[in-house]
Design a protein around this nucleic acid. Structure first.
Length: 257
DNA sequence: ATGGCTTTAAAATAAAGA
């Protein structure tokens, strides 16, 4: 059973790329981030036409997440994180599919730092940690997958110096990510690539893709119950090189049924 | 170099991303 995640950077601009990725890799579950559309603009019929049913949480202009499942409707468990009633951003959607709890996240970028956006990122990470602790307590097979906007270690970026002042690799961001691992969650792609050098994002600017100037910010964190079933994990890197590509590549895990 | 792209929203620029 393959569970994938793709920050698509605009579902309207990316729909042909997205449909061909689904048909070529055929994940059982596909989590999307940055759909950048209001709920009314979500192209559910296009996914239905190739056999996927979906739930989504949109927003005008930016953010927005969705969960697609092959041949069945994801059973929604949560939308949004508790802990901040004033938070209007669409960044969290959680559902059950085929006996697996799947949480699709688009963690705040946090730039510029320091500042209110960075404060929001760190608060959001604490709210996420609280929800993940609740899921842990349920002792179910679970994956929290998506765009974490955190570069976990220096080996996860082509040049630590180039992004030294960026919110994605500040000690506070890294510590918050490390706390999730400390709570018992397994970074599947990191675990299977211990030497690093694996990227999931390449900037549109300055020829970053052509120079392979990337970093790893899309992650899949597995509960112990699902980590026991992990077979493989990786990045669909070639999709970053296609015409009209997102700046992220899709990531995936393969788990035993 | 607070940017060298790209998307969305909306009518020319502005916000946001990472």
């Amino acid at each position: 059973m393959r569970i994938s995640s793709f920050n698509i950077n605009g579902i309207k601009a990316r729909l042909p790329r997205l449909l061909e990725w689904l048909e070529e890799t055929r994940p059982a579950v596909a989590c999307l981030q940055e759909i950048k559309t209001q709920d009314e603009g979500f192209p559910a019929a296009d996914f239905e036409a190739i056999g996927y049913k979906a739930i989504w949480h949109g927003q005008k202009g930016f953010n927005g997440v969705a969960i697609l499942a092959d041949g069945e409707m994801p059973r929604e468990v949560r939308r949004g994180l508790a802990g901040d009633s004033g938070d209007e951003h669409s960044r969290y959607l959680e559902a059950d599919v085929r006996g697996v709890r799947v949480a699709c996240i688009y963690l705040p970028n946090g730039n510029p730092q320091p500042g209110p956006k960075f404060d929001y990122k760190l608060r959001w990470m604490e709210r996420l940690r609280a929800r993940m602790a609740e899921i842990s307590a349920e002792e179910v097979p679970a994956v929290v997958i998506g765009d974490y906007n955190v570069i976990p270690e220096d080996k996860d970026i082509w040049s630590p110096k180039a992004m030294a002042d960026d919110a994605l690799m500040q000690p506070e961001s890294r510590d918050a990510f490390a706390r999730l691992i400390g709570d018992g969650w397994t970074d599947a792609i990191g675990l299977l690539n211990p030497r690093g050098g694996v990227w999931t994002y390449w900037d549109y600017q300055a020829g970053a893709w052509q120079r392979d100037h990337g970093f790893r910010i899309d992650h899949a964190l597995l509960s112990p119950e699902l980590a026991d079933r992990l077979v493989a994990a990786g990045v669909d890197k070639t999709f970053r090189g296609r015409e009209k590509a997102s700046d992220h590549a899709p990531v995936w895990i393969e788990v035993r049924d």
